[in-house]
Design a protein around this nucleic acid. Sequence first.
DNA 1: GTGGGCGAACGAATCGTTTCGTCTCCGCGA
DNA 2: TCGCGGAGACGAAACGATTCGTTCGCCCAC
Lengths: 383, 383
Amino acid sequence: MAGIRDVARAAGVSVSTVSQVLNNPEFGKPQTRQRVFAAAEKLNYRPNAIARSLVRQRADTLGLVIPDLLNPVFPTVADAVERTARAAGYSLVLGTTSREPAAERQYRQLFMQNKADGVIFFAALDESNIQALLRRHVPVVLIERPMSVPGVDLVGVDNRLGGYLATRHLLEQVAATAAASPAQPLQAQSPPVAMIVGPLGGEVEQQRLAGYQRALLEAGLSGGADGKSLVVEAWDHVEEAGRQAMAELLYRLRQRGRLGHTRPEGQGQVVPLGQLHSSPPLAGVFVASDILAVGALRQLEAEGIRVPDDVLIVGFDNTLSRYTSPPLSTVAQPFVRMGETAVHLLLERISDPGRPPSQVLLEPALIIRQSSQPSTIWPTSKP
Amino acid sequence: MAGIRDVARAAGVSVSTVSQVLNNPEFGKPQTRQRVFAAAEKLNYRPNAIARSLVRQRADTLGLVIPDLLNPVFPTVADAVERTARAAGYSLVLGTTSREPAAERQYRQLFMQNKADGVIFFAALDESNIQALLRRHVPVVLIERPMSVPGVDLVGVDNRLGGYLATRHLLEQVAATAAASPAQPLQAQSPPVAMIVGPLGGEVEQQRLAGYQRALLEAGLSGGADGKSLVVEAWDHVEEAGRQAMAELLYRLRQRGRLGHTRPEGQGQVVPLGQLHSSPPLAGVFVASDILAVGALRQLEAEGIRVPDDVLIVGFDNTLSRYTSPPLSTVAQPFVRMGETAVHLLLERISDPGRPPSQVLLEPALIIRQSSQPSTIWPTSKP
DNA sequence: GTGGGCGAACGAATCGTTTCGTCTCCGCGA
DNA sequence: TCGCGGAGACGAAACGATTCGTTCGCCCAC
């Protein structure tokens, strides 16, 4: 493989001249430049990026660590990160952890070995990994969490607002329906809107929950003593967990007489929840991520409960929600802006390590589709 | 940042001893090893991966270049690639091209600069980029295409078989229906199964088309002079292209009197295609990728044509198909095995550059869901 | 004619490791 | 006592670039 010394020899100049000519458009007189270019061309010379990195003390590479690429949330952000990084002249090394601490540690070690000029973590598991990198002066930007690490750049979404918007929307739909037919008074302890949420160990999940509770409170409902009487926690961010959570929710509701019989043997009609029961019926479920909602819909379908006829559903993320049956209303996250912002913050910190950390909070937006609207007012053309 | 010489000084040994001790579990007597470990620990020493790469002449990094991360096909493979690479001690630099030749060239340049020990291309655009890498002795493995590059490792899916399976399934469904009600003879020039396919510039698309045509032929149907009378080419692998392709298909069918009136103003009932027309009706559409199928479904919905009641649909990929309304029958690609196989082939070639190239062809499998089955026999519980 | 100034090219040090040949020292056998 | 072998540690030469201080040579002005 031709090296820079070969080029120098072929061009009849010194090694340093070749380097200068190739890197600096101003350097050398035209004739010399020409000879160097010709020699480089003839030898098909390509500078060795590794040697360059060694002396320049920069890898021209950014790291991105995410849980996986199967939940569509992450590829969406990764795509934006990659494009933004490339536009800035950086390449991207991508790591996935499958939410296993060992894998995250592995990447922490990797990035502590000068393999990247900075690292973005999306939904990092262990704060100590971030601390370790920062101690070695490796710039880090966090997306979404953990939000407790002090003094580190972070870009997040206002999850509380998102949870609030989703829940309020469901409550409004309930109110509209109640106005149309003779209403039963809502009882404070038994909210008409339930919630399915990912593992509550995460701040994100806690905040979405807080938004849900705020919306209930605002409507004069409490959701039980702890505000969680109809909140079911899914054990992971996978479809199956969402399905199980919905099964658990339905079980709880039956226990309290708030759900009637389901379609026997999958045949016949279910009685709309709003018409039969003495306790206030369940009207809607806020499922705090689209991937959980997919599982939840599966369970509802299996039990013969129809959406939105029997129950309203709102998801979160705006990923899978476009494709479900029926299309899910959801809280859209600004994934592209999240990725871009994370890269920009990282580049700023690389160029100015001393600058004060900034925490950017982006706003989610409610998107209304079929799953939260009575079927009679379904749009007939585009969803 | 503490370097190896600092460790050597602190441990009272030479630089080379430190290196040996740290890399070779056999080296040195226990007492010396202990001193070295202690010093490294105390100084929080981490070897500089870049310097190591320079001397070892390997980056311990693999490259993966894909069109994007938004079409779920690619993240699914990327996830498998990343996990397999990591298990083998490699990190992964990920590049996306957005199907722009300039971006692919950019990555070709990057990987020609020793940034990776080998590169996997999924759906590469330009063969010359691969040739250039091979000339520099950078090992390359191709996934899916281009399949025309001679002498390079490749892992692909039998797309022809996939297209065949999908089409044959649709034809079988037609036959079953025809058997149940008085049948109209099928006319050879006007197949009852249409196809929507991605840009036909790609070998993959050509092969799926070939599978479709083979199935028609086998059933004694020709699909027109060129076998493409009901084949519509989408301009890209995005939803919107699928929607437009379906609109185009419906337009063509109306021209030929093979589609009746649609639900006026989105109200009322469409007449089932099989009952009204003198020309053989359209019974099903094979949409050669799930993402196109999503768009196609959207157009059908907008025109009030129901799936599977009015027309049967089969997709390809098994990505989005689980989430659509109704769930799509589809041809499943073995994405995980594709990713794993690609990495294994690459590692083998890295360790033995001279070994003969291998082309691995994996088999797709038909998955039957609701979109290709008459609604009366829909499963009532799990899809 | 000589010295100053400047543009162009050069040389050598450096980045932080690995690796291989060499040296030292110790123990053992002749 | 001497020689030999081997284990253990060392030193220096890479790896392939960048970068900065220096030299060279030329032109112009004094």
